[in-house]
Design a protein around this nucleic acid. Structure first.
Lengths: 347, 347
DNA sequence: ATGAAAGCGCTAACAG
DNA sequence: CTGTTAGCGCTTTCAT
């Protein structure tokens, strides 16, 4: 009666125990590498389990141990679709690094759009969650924290959002640095292509631009558009170059801005970099082969993804940290022809 | 003693039952919408559960019901990282659509690189799996099928891989159509930029090209390179245009080929489309704003992602199908300036 | 219309 | 060194 697995659905731990002539505890210990049994027993049990094609039930283990090995990856949504269009390359890189990092520590990632119906959220047993760019009073984060789950955000949490930790770039420093770079290349009036959204990235970057303008005594010249709409970006780029106070250098905050600005420049007969210096924030490699190649600011999403996951898993496993709660990662300016000053002439 | 939840970790179903003055069965039924209790009871229980902030345990439910609501999304890997570089845009779009579709039916996606350590695979309770471009005798697929899980692949399975169903484009038709398009635009000798890998997409596309050449009596002109290496693509593009039998039109099978070919054309002083017609297979929008804009073949990854998930969930839920086991989705040729013939002159 | 009780398959105390 | 036992928190018969 103990091994009633007559013709039951799947091979269970009891079947293995029976076949190996040991107790289920021994099977469990042998398979989980608990150090209390002699190698002979362990090998034997493992072999039997293998032969039987036994796979432990993840559900049962999760229920018993309270750990699922699952990490949520919450992505912002605009409209119905998960992920925003303009963040493709960034998101893909970040998610890829996060997936690797999680995997290396035995966890897997579950993609969960922030707007998910609530029942989907509670239908999956999560050990913790990575949140990308949470909004000010993000209900998802609040709920997760209430459940006692660790939450680490990619991007400083706005307001008083109670995340466990966060990872972000030093956006102010990056923008200031980049503007200095453009000025050094001969820019006299630098324009900005920015977003109408209020996320931290857009806000901090724009603020940094305004500070810089203020510091060097330049009038700000910028156009803002809804960043999730790719068409709006092309229009805004055009608008920026059509202004009477047309800038002689432009920084675009979003990935597609480079090609949009290049196209707009062509329409107005502006040569890059001779008449117009160009930089945009992007992770895309297309800018290495445009004509001319365009200087980009990389946010290094791989590092961010890795760091976020490490922080989260550390929190899950109760590993303490010296960092207070947020860490800042460097950005990288990849200088190409579009921002080389008039006196430079190398490719 | 029945409601021993003195100061226990989380609100359980028993706590709700106690607080509502009913049995746990009633709570379960009320929350899951079983139709056997009067509305009054149901409302009352729901309200109490809400007030207590009760969240059912996904792990327990999964153990009991055998369904986790989790679908694996297996991505091919080159090297250590999940996803291949050249497939970014395709993968991102496809994954996004798959995520939406799954969500709409109450499922979530788990990202699982095909090379995962085995223990990660068996640590997560999956109801089924989507596999992207499985290789010939993919061990992961074999194992999953052995476990009795439904597996649907994006891309025809090579060999005799026993997937439950598959979704794919009609690559042969797409390539033939595209080559006809180029010929109609005035191409006399069409070249191909292809891959050295043996996946179905590359194989079928290349075959179709060879067939077409054979049919129209053109000598094949192609260069193959390892598609996962972005640098190799640029080199191969250059090689193709450097040949003595230089083609006057080129089709590139991989996403970055368009910019690479454009750059190579510039190096050789070839004007596009006047001296060289260009088409590449890509989901990227950058080709709408390059100079000139480049014609692309879209594989419509959204549709594929959606279809794959629908098929999988249907299989999970035991919904029968008329389709035998594979379905073919159309592609779309997005015609732009790079492939407009000499006699056309609109933008 | 509701409740009691039996597990789902595993891990972790606790005995031997 | 190994086995017995008690649950993890639900859903689901079956009984009332």
């Amino acid at each position: 009666m103990t091994t009633a697995a007559h013709r039951r659905s799947r091979m269970g731990i009891r079947d293995v125990a029976a076949a190996a002539g040991v107790s289920i505890t021994t099977v469990s210990d042998a398979l989980n590498g608990k150090g209390r049994l002699p190698d002979a027993t362990r090998r034997h049990v493992r072999e039997v389990a293998d032969r039987l094609g036994y796979r432990p039930s993840a559900a049962a283990r999760t229920l018993r141990t309270g750990k699922s090995g699952l990490i949520g990856l919450t992505v912002t949504t605009y409209g119905d679709e998960p992920f925003t269009f303009t963040e493709f390359a960034y998101f893909a890189e970040m998610a890829r690094a996060a997936t690797s990092a999680a995997l290396a520590r035995g966890y897997a990632l579950v993609i969960l759009p922030a707007t998910s119906r609530h029942d989907v959220w509670s239908n999956v047993a999560l050990d913790g969650t990575v949140v990308i760019d949470p909004s000010d009073h993000d209900p998802v984060v609040t709920e997760l924290v209430r459940q006692g789950l660790p939450v680490v955000s990619d991007g400083r949490p706005a307001g008083t959002l109670p995340v466990t930790a966060w990872v972000d770039n030093d956006h102010e420093a990056a923008v200031l640095d980049l503007l200095d770079h453009l000025a050094a290349a001969g820019a006299r009036r630098i324009g900005l292509l920015t977003g109408t959204t209020t996320d931290t990235y857009t806000r901090l970057s724009t603020q940094a631009y305004l500070h810089w303008c203020n510091r060097v005594g330049q009038d700000p010249v910028y156009e803002a558009y809804p960043a999730h709409d790719p068409c709006a970006g092309a229009v805004a780029a055009d608008r920026l170059l059509a202004r009477p106070d047309r800038p002689d250098a432009v920084y675009g905050l979003f990935d597609p801005n480079g090609t949009d600005l290049l196209a707009a420049a062509r329409r107005y007969g502006l040569r890059v970099p001779d008449d117009l210096l160009l930089v945009c924030c992007s992770e895309s490699t297309v800018y290495a082969t445009t004509e001319p190649p365009i200087t980009t600011l990389s946010l290094k999403p791989r590092r961010i993804g890795t760091a976020v996951v490490q922080l989260l898993i550390d929190a899950i496993e109760g590993i303490g940290h010296d960092h207070p709660d947020g860490i800042t990662m460097p950005t990288q300016l990849i200088t190409r022809a579009s921002s080389r000053g008039r006196r430079h002439c190398d490719a």
